[in-house]
Amino acid sequence: MSLRELDPKTVHDAVQAGSAVIIDVREPREFATERLHGASLHPLSTFDPQSIPVDKTRDVILQCGSGKRSMDALQRCEAAGVAITAHLKGGLMAWKAAGLPTVTIDPATGQVIDPK
């Protein structure tokens, strides 16, 4: 398997087109504060490659805050023989630097803000 590092725009476009899903490997507190729309949480601290829902019709793309943990999770998938081969290069930081939207919580009201 060839491990792929995808740029934020490529990931965004694939998710928007319905050809990819995002698995966030950060911890629950981080995920609750800010996340990518539609991402599923599978924290690296309890990460089990076998528990990731692999959908043969869509790419599964791993994501974290900076790309370090998602690469770790990607290597764990490869070692376990799980067919997940891509992650978001630069993670959430690169996503935000590219001007792409995130789901956040308004600290004043506790309301979820999801610009999609």
Rank of each mutant, 00 (worst) to 15 (best):
E34W: 09
P101K: 13
A14P: 04
D7N: 12
G81P: 01
S70D: 02
A83I: 14
A80I: 13
A79W: 09
A86F: 03
S45E: 13
D72M: 13
G65L: 11
I52H: 00
Q111I: 13
K68C: 10
K56R: 15
R26A: 00
P28L: 04
L100F: 06
L100E: 06
L6G: 04
M71S: 15
P43T: 00
L62R: 02
G67V: 04
W95N: 05
E30R: 04
L36C: 12
P49N: 05
C64D: 12
H87E: 12
R76W: 14
A79K: 15
R76S: 13
T109D: 08
A97T: 11
V15A: 06
T57G: 11
C64L: 10
H37M: 08
V82G: 01
S45H: 12
A79G: 11
H87W: 06
A108F: 10
G91K: 00
K96M: 11
G18V: 03
L62F: 04
S19I: 10
H42R: 15
P53Q: 09
G38E: 01
H87L: 10
A32I: 13
D106I: 06
D72N: 14
L88H: 01
T109F: 05
R35V: 04
I113Y: 01
L36T: 13
F31A: 05
V82W: 01
Q111Y: 11
P28Q: 07
V112P: 02
K116H: 15
H12S: 13
I61W: 01
D72Q: 12
A98F: 06
H12R: 10
K96H: 07
L6H: 03
K89V: 14
D55T: 04
D114F: 01
P8N: 04
I105Q: 08
T85N: 15
D24P: 00
P101G: 12
D55R: 08
D13F: 04
S51F: 09
S66A: 14
D59N: 14
G81L: 04
T46N: 09
G110I: 07
P43N: 02
V112C: 08
D114P: 01
E30Y: 04
P49Q: 05
I23T: 03
L36V: 15
A79P: 07
T104M: 02
V21P: 00
R26L: 06
F31S: 03
A17N: 13
L92K: 12
E5W: 08
M1A: 15
T109H: 09
H87N: 11
H37W: 06
Q50L: 13
D24C: 03
